[in-house]
Structures are given as C-alpha cells and as structure tokens.
Amino acid sequence: MKTVAEILKAKGSSAVYALAPSATVFEAVKLMAEKNVGALLVMEGERIVGVVTERDYARKVVLLARSSKDTLLRDVMTSAVIYVRPSQTSEECMALMTESRVRHLPVLDDGRLVGLISIGDIVKGIISEQNFIIEQLQHYISGDRS
C-alpha cells in the first residue's frame, strides 16, 4: 500500500488552495474553476477552520436559493475537518473517506499543512500499484526474472 507521502510525491504539485472564512462563495467557486479543483480549504492564517466543496455549493447555496456573491464561506463550509498524516496508507484514507463520506483530505505533518489529497489521487495511486503488480506477475509467468 502506498502512503500519503508517496501519493503527494506522485501528484507532483503540493499546491493547496485556500480562502478565508470571510470570502464569498462566489470567490470560492471562481477559484475552484480557475484551478480545476473540487475543494478548497478555509483557513485563518495557518489554521484550517473548514473545507468547502462543489457539493457544499450545490446543496447549501443553489438548492437553498442563496446568492453566491452574498454568502460567506463560514456559512456553508464543513467545519469538522478530517485530516490524514503522510505516513497513513491509501487503504486507511479510502476507509476514512468512505466512512466520513468525504472526497478530500488535508494532509498534516506535525500540525503543519503539507498537502491535500482527493479520492482521485488515491484511486490513481492504487491503479498504479496494481499495474506494477500485474507487470511483475507477467514477468514471473513468462520466466523473465530480470
């Protein structure tokens, strides 16, 4: 099983996009569109105070007929933030995501934000790992031990 640290390394970019709780939902959706991401962290300085996702926008703004330009992130963000450490495995992350019904997990190392992983990052890592195993088995079966 790959670790979160390995997934972040394979991802190549450790960029994490964030806004303050006083930013508007419109600003968040605009940033998500510009960066082609589905979630942003909501931060006060170095402290994570929430996560806002496309799902939050759909359910807490659109369905409630709120204005994205007048609604603040603090009013729609998920404030119970679940996070992982770099040493945790992709299997642990998948279990946590499934149990908590979330698709994004901040990665904290000694309380310091080092990245953000998505279910897509984890699936990509698992597929890569499975492809490697298949390739090794094919070499073994064919007698190619090099």
Rank of each mutant, 00 (worst) to 15 (best):
residue 14 S to K: 15
residue 18 A to W: 08
residue 18 A to D: 11
residue 18 A to N: 12
residue 21 P to D: 12
residue 21 P to E: 12
residue 23 A to Q: 05
residue 23 A to V: 00
residue 25 V to W: 03
residue 27 E to D: 15
residue 27 E to G: 01
residue 28 A to H: 05
residue 29 V to N: 06
residue 29 V to R: 11
residue 31 L to N: 04
residue 37 V to N: 07
residue 39 A to D: 10
residue 39 A to K: 05
residue 40 L to V: 05
residue 44 E to P: 00
residue 49 V to K: 07
residue 50 G to Q: 03
residue 51 V to Y: 01
residue 52 V to N: 03
residue 53 T to I: 04
residue 58 A to K: 09
residue 58 A to E: 12
residue 62 V to E: 13
residue 62 V to Q: 09
residue 62 V to P: 10
residue 63 L to I: 06
residue 65 A to T: 06
residue 66 R to H: 08
residue 68 S to C: 12
residue 69 K to F: 07
residue 69 K to T: 15
residue 70 D to S: 11
residue 71 T to L: 10
residue 73 L to H: 03
residue 73 L to M: 07
residue 74 R to A: 12
residue 75 D to N: 12
residue 76 V to R: 04
residue 76 V to Y: 02
residue 77 M to A: 09
residue 82 I to N: 08
residue 85 R to S: 15
residue 87 S to T: 05
residue 90 S to W: 01
residue 93 C to H: 00
residue 94 M to H: 00
residue 96 L to P: 03
residue 96 L to S: 08
residue 97 M to V: 04
residue 103 R to N: 13
residue 109 D to A: 14
residue 112 R to G: 05
residue 113 L to P: 02
residue 114 V to P: 09
residue 121 D to F: 09
residue 121 D to K: 11
residue 122 I to Y: 08
residue 126 I to N: 10
residue 127 I to P: 02
residue 127 I to E: 15
residue 129 E to N: 03
residue 131 N to W: 01
residue 133 I to T: 14
residue 136 Q to D: 13
residue 138 Q to F: 00
residue 139 H to E: 15
residue 139 H to N: 15
residue 139 H to S: 14
